[in-house]
Design a protein around this nucleic acid. Structure first.
Lengths: 202, 202
DNA sequence: CTATAATATGAACAACCATTCAGTTTATGA
DNA sequence: TCATAAACTGAATGGTTGTTCATATTATAG
């Protein structure tokens, strides 16, 4: 079974959240498999049996966390992007919002990517549906004559790749240079806008 | 301990490789944690004890597989890129070689990314050193006036992100459209070269 | 106040698994 | 050929872990 039993009383809601938060922290630090129910309940300060009042299994808890993150990051990006007018500004805001969210919740990467080793279909569904929405937005931008008429599916994965790896660099503190988010996003947008290569004089 | 004992006799080399290959396949299909030594030795057709003749632990085998893949993919890319003259052609060849290698060894993604959940430092070292080499090549290209003088560290992660996610799309069969590698690489290169957005008439 | 449902406990269980080791078989080289 | 080393075996071990359950506590509605 997969169904989570949501608590009803005030105290029980507290317990639910304490368990949820403890699991997020431990899945992040040690990974899903290395985290035991005992670890989670100890950190949450409840008995082992309490866990099973709300979550029928360890896997169901993981799925619930994944769904929550997935929902939140999309909402965050959509909300910020909607404030911008042009596709250029929307693209810049989308990349920036993703990176900022990732920096605020560094657990996100671990938890989303780990789905590949827990249930591959979860991983595929996540990126597939993320891409589908992205493609819709890009196709509208093509119609509006804001971006060039390139294959939107390929472009969607290209832009997702950029965002994810730049986010990775920021969150994991890879590299040695300036890690100011606005600066980094500026560099990325410059490349996306003007291209990487020097133009030959015509 | 981490040290692998390499076999010396002809038969032993065969056994070593059979165990190695079985592990690659199982780590790919089920993930590292869900794969047991019993699974590996059964698939390889040897006794449990045989495993420990060559690998002092399950982790040491994983690390050896990771190192092998890491080495091979770099060699493959370096060899193909070295045949090209211009940075544009090198970049195109690099992306293409990566995707083709990933398609030939779909286990690579799982095994490299899973390092994040086995030993985070392995993951960081992998991308950090990959990026460092990339940066050197990009800096040379800036000096040669082949690419624009953008922050090479940011650009390295940008390009790595593109390559990895396009590779992911191809290997995992994400999306629904044309999956011809040359076609996909053409789209990516077009965007990298000419930019994503429509230029305003000046 | 009281009956009932919700919440919480933690010891116990059954399954699983990485690793060891005492003993056997096979290959090698002198 | 034969002694020795290398390769191999698989049952046993010791530890771990997800889940259950009988029992206890707390909250709530009537």
């Amino acid at each position: 079974m997969n169904e989570i039993k949501m608590p009803t009383t005030r105290n029980a809601i507290g317990t639910f959240n304490v368990v949820f938060d403890a699991a997020v922290e431990l899945f992040y630090k040690k990974g899903y498999h290395a985290t035991t129910i005992a670890n989670i309940t100890q950190k949450a300060g409840v008995a082992a049996g309490t866990f099973y009042l709300y979550f029928p299994s360890k896997l169901s808890l993981y799925k619930h966390i994944l769904t929550t993150f997935s929902h939140n990051i999309r909402k965050e990006i959509a909300s910020k992007v909607s404030l911008k007018e042009t596709r250029y500004e929307k693209e810049r805001e989308g990349i920036k919002a993703f990176i900022e969210y990732a920096k605020q919740y560094p657990q996100m990467y671990n938890i989303i990517w780990e789905s590949l080793y827990i249930d591959r279909q979860l991983f595929i569904d996540y990126y597939d549906s993320f891409a589908k929405r992205y493609i819709l937005a890009l196709e509208q931008a093509v119609i509006n004559d804001e971006i060039r008429p390139l294959d939107t599916e390929v472009i969607a994965y290209t832009l997702m790749g950029i965002t994810n790896f730049i986010g990775l660099k920021v969150v994991m503190d890879l590299g040695t240079r300036n890690d100011d988010i606005d600066y980094i996003v500026d560099v990325v947008m410059d490349m996306i806008d003007e291209g990487l290569f020097k133009k030959k004089k015509t």
